Computed example of a mutant assay.
Amino acid sequence: MPHSCLNTIDPTLIPDNPYLLLTPGPLSTSKRVRAALLKDWCTWDKEYNDVVQEIRSRLVALASKSGAYTAVLMQGSGTFSVESAVTTLLPPIDAKVLVLTNGAYGERIAQIASYAKIPCLTCNVEETTTFSLEALEHLLCNDPSIRAVAVVHCETTTGILNPIVEIARIVKAHHKLLIVDAMSSFGGIEIDLDALDADVLISSSNKCIQGVPGFGFMLFKKTTLATCQGNARSLSLDAYEQYATMENGGGKWRFTSPTHVVRAFAEALCELEDEGGVAARYARYRTNQRLLVEGMEALGFECVVEKALQSPIITSFYSPKSASYDFQTFYARLKAKGFVIYPGKVSHVESFRIGTIGHVFPEDITRLLKAVQEAIFW
């Protein structure tokens, strides 16, 4: 059994949560994962650093078998890791990035580039649709100054799933760097990094691997990362130096790491393996989302995103048109029944969102639908 799976706290002693988080993260975690938070760790201790090294290896193994990738962990929210990756990958000169945007998280990458004074071109499409591959091809053919392309895999503004395989094929045919924000998909949807040939993929501890918030991670192509020394615009977010310290220090972080969060994440990785890996987790998430949509549509709700583009991560629903509908009231009624949902984020329509990831199972969706039916007041 891997070192990280030796949970010394009895999970049955952990209290139940008062509600399920039906969100794209932070999300509901198991008692097993929360139990792993109840032990203190020393950042210099070999036992702890061995856990870090194991996490790094296991993360890479989830998406690559070639040996071409390495994992770099970074303190903070997922956005910290996106910023770390973008501002470490791109050099100070000749570093124009094309960001594909169909929601708030693609726009956030463009905002990161702006703050870091990285030349940035955006390809914007409606939040309820995805990108034209022909338009991407045209942009890359007509602007040779583009050095890299960035795309969000699952855009949780709506729940849309962008076609990263097809995008990667075009980007790599033009010999550009590829940045994949897989924040809300990694660990819940199978991703073949070797086939994508992405230069960096970014995700976070509190998403589909079902850990708790506190750090993110970047899966860098080793040959790409080797060229990145000195690129970083930030001391704390220098992914190259973080990598060098972890490699040379046997799992040591440069600055204080979120030890409890790291240990809980190690347990979450073991839990993922016990469930049957990413394929099994994807199947559960997809079942959750299918049951949710079927039930919500039966109650009269309508999805914002067409089914062909919908991810199993989070689903946007149009708000009822009734004058008596109020999201905060709806939210409060569901929370009182044990369910927390998300407000909408689509800019031009009134909507709300329900996540189907985390320690959530089909029977939970059945209970949610009953609660929604009882909460309807319009």
Results as ranks from 00 to 15, higher is better:
residue 3 H to Q: 09
residue 6 L to C: 05
residue 6 L to G: 03
residue 6 L to D: 04
residue 9 I to F: 14
residue 19 Y to V: 00
residue 20 L to H: 09
residue 21 L to C: 01
residue 24 P to T: 03
residue 24 P to Y: 08
residue 26 P to S: 01
residue 33 V to K: 09
residue 36 A to Q: 05
residue 36 A to Y: 12
residue 39 K to F: 06
residue 41 W to H: 08
residue 52 V to A: 08
residue 53 Q to Y: 09
residue 84 S to G: 12
residue 87 T to V: 05
residue 95 A to P: 00
residue 98 L to G: 03
residue 104 A to F: 03
residue 108 R to T: 10
residue 111 Q to L: 04
residue 111 Q to Y: 01
residue 118 I to Y: 10
residue 121 L to N: 08
residue 121 L to G: 00
residue 133 L to V: 04
residue 134 E to I: 13
residue 146 I to D: 01
residue 150 A to Q: 06
residue 151 V to C: 05
residue 153 H to G: 00
residue 154 C to F: 02
residue 161 L to T: 13
residue 163 P to Y: 11
residue 164 I to Y: 09
residue 165 V to S: 11
residue 166 E to T: 07
residue 168 A to W: 12
residue 172 K to R: 15
residue 176 K to C: 00
residue 176 K to I: 03
residue 186 F to K: 13
residue 189 I to R: 11
residue 195 A to D: 15
residue 196 L to Q: 12
residue 213 P to Q: 14
residue 214 G to E: 13
residue 215 F to S: 08
residue 219 L to P: 12
residue 224 T to L: 07
residue 225 L to D: 02
residue 226 A to P: 12
residue 228 C to G: 04
residue 232 A to V: 05
residue 234 S to L: 01
residue 237 L to A: 07
residue 237 L to N: 10
residue 238 D to S: 10
residue 239 A to T: 01
residue 242 Q to F: 08
residue 243 Y to G: 02
residue 247 E to Q: 09
residue 252 K to Q: 11
residue 254 R to P: 15
residue 258 P to C: 01
residue 266 A to R: 13
residue 266 A to Q: 03
residue 271 E to D: 10
residue 283 A to S: 10
residue 286 R to C: 01
residue 287 T to R: 15
residue 291 L to N: 10
residue 297 E to C: 02
residue 298 A to W: 05
residue 304 V to D: 01
residue 304 V to I: 04
residue 304 V to Y: 07
residue 307 K to G: 00
residue 312 P to Q: 07
residue 318 Y to W: 15
residue 319 S to R: 11
residue 319 S to A: 12
residue 320 P to Q: 06
residue 321 K to Q: 13
residue 325 Y to D: 10
residue 328 Q to E: 13
residue 329 T to E: 04
residue 332 A to D: 04
residue 334 L to G: 09
residue 336 A to L: 05
residue 341 I to C: 00
residue 346 V to P: 01
residue 347 S to G: 01
residue 348 H to S: 06
residue 349 V to H: 14
residue 353 R to S: 03
residue 355 G to H: 01
residue 360 V to Q: 07
residue 362 P to E: 07
residue 367 R to Y: 11
residue 373 Q to G: 01
residue 373 Q to L: 03
